[in-house]
Design a protein around this nucleic acid. Structure first.
Length: 430
DNA sequence: TCTGGGGTCCTAGGACCC
DNA sequence: TCTGGGGTCCTAGGACCC
């Protein structure tokens, strides 16, 4: 059977691990640039703060709410720890998102393993985890929602009676089903389908004809037939993207080009960490969302690279050139993105046009310096100026990288932990 | 003059997920 | 005044192959 382990309000919960003062108050975590709410604690949900709500509105309406800027280094580290924990229960683990993973478990032992995993996550990581168990991944998703709604923490649908399962499907709207988004839901309403039960009763062959193979799979999965297997190994990555709302709107060509160059470098650095090289680089410029006034612009351009690369110089220069080519006067640019395509493993990247050794050496030095002195300590062009460039994103409420930076370790917390261990007589000079 | 049945690859556009 | 950042998959249609 399938189990889905999901951290409750992951970003908020992680922030609370090292900051106990946040544990009882309403807490929200903000998107990049401190733009809008991307995670809410249970208390914050209760206040009525909604997902995606702009921070300036939340701050005005609920002045007392606690806030943190998204700290992905911290969340990623906890995600890896949870995966490691899950892998102790079964070799069949599929990382699904930063806060969720699927597990395949023997039918008889699933519920016990789920309770153990939940208990271990709480005691060893400090994270609240809910687990749903069912015959298919789609139903396991639903079970996890149910585990959270009831507060039980674990929901095993394989042990639910047919009547209970039918009742659950009958009160679940189609939008609550994994794979049914806002658009599909609207189209389904036209066919008098608005609950999970109604969808499960629909003809899968009709769904395939009228919609897609995905909807057919969803219907069969709701009926208990597994159609979406566990993907233990992630497929090779096809693209990698770096895009940001700019910290400050830009109008001048050289500023936009500098921002694109900076984004290109950030993207290249991430690719080097994963051992990838890109055959194609794309950049886009945008004046931002519909809520902004002024003339709209959304442009994108693509450039094939002579040799697949992930070097800072090539990415910076190519991204800047693409940005300059697309820039038009009279617009306000609020969003820039860089996209790497045609990814291959970096070791396959050497080609007819020779080695990129010079660029590689520069990159190795840049990577080493950034590892030691932190992001933003060095770079090409404006990205290397210690004073943050005007387009740098705002993160005014960022917590320390407690577990990934030596200079930001949670010393107070560690002292307390050491004291406890000493009291228990389990700590020696070491 | 007429014309089948089996493929692959690419792109644009639309949809979904967290 | 201020509004996120990543990803993947599917389908239709066109071009091409034998």
């Amino acid at each position: 059977v399938y189990a889905l382990a999901d951290v409750d309000a992951m970003y908020c919960s992680v922030e609370r691990v090292f900051q106990p003062q946040l544990r009882t108050c309403p807490l929200v975590v903000l998107s990049n640039n401190d733009g809008c709410v991307i995670a809410r604690s249970a208390e914050a949900k209760q206040l009525g703060i909604i997902m995606g709500q702009p921070w300036f509105q939340v701050r005005r309406q609920w002045p007392g709410v606690a806030v943190r800027s998204a700290n992905y280094a911290l969340y990623g580290d906890f995600s890896a720890r949870l995966l490691a924990l899950a892998s102790q229960h079964t070799p069949h683990v599929e990382p699904y998102s930063i806060d969720e993973c699927f597990l395949a478990l023997p039918a008889g032992q699933a519920a016990q393993a789920a309770r153990q995993l939940r208990d271990q996550a709480a005691r060893w990581l400090g994270l609240p985890v809910s687990v749903g168990i069912a015959a298919t991944k789609t139903l396991a998703k639903l079970a996890t929602t149910q585990a959270k709604a009831t507060g039980q923490g674990v929901c095993d649908l394989t042990r639910a009676t047919p009547a209970a399962l039918a009742a659950l499907l009958a009160r679940t709207p189609v939008t609550g089903i994994w794979g049914i988004g806002y658009r599909l839901a609207a189209r389904l309403r036209g066919h008098a389908i608005s609950t999970a039960a109604e969808l499960a009763a629909a003809d899968p062959r009709w769904a395939r004809r009228a919609f897609s193979v995905n909807l057919e799979r969803t219907i069969r999965e709701l009926r208990g037939t597994p159609c979406i297997p566990l993907a233990a190994q992630p497929p090779p990555r096809r693209q990698m993207m770096h895009c940001r709302q700019l910290g400050q709107p830009l109008t001048r060509a050289e500023d936009v080009a500098a921002a694109a160059a900076g984004f290109g470098q950030a993207l290249a650095a991430r690719m080097r960490r994963r051992g990838l090289a890109a055959g194609t680089l794309s950049v886009w410029l945008s004046s931002g969302g519909d809520f902004y006034r002024g003339p709209r612009i959304d442009v994108q351009a693509v450039q094939a690279l002579l040799v697949p690369a992930a070097t800072a110089g090539i990415f910076a220069a190519t991204a800047a050139a693409l940005a300059r080519r697309m820039w038009r006067p009279g617009y306000t640019y609020r969003r820039v993105g860089a996209l790497a395509l045609d990814l291959i493993p970096a070791r396959q990247a050497a080609g007819l046009w020779g080695s990129t050794q010079a660029g590689d050496a520069v990159c190795a030095a840049i990577d080493a310096i950034i590892t030691r002195y932190g992001p933003g300590s060095i770079g090409l062009g404006q990205a290397g100026i210690k004073q943050p460039p005007p387009w740098a994103t705002h993160q005014h409420h960022l917590s320390p990288a407690f577990t990934t930076r030596w200079d930001q370790l949670a010393t107070t917390w560690l002292t307390t932990a050491t004291d406890i261990l000493m009291q228990q007589g389990r700590s020696s000079a070491g």
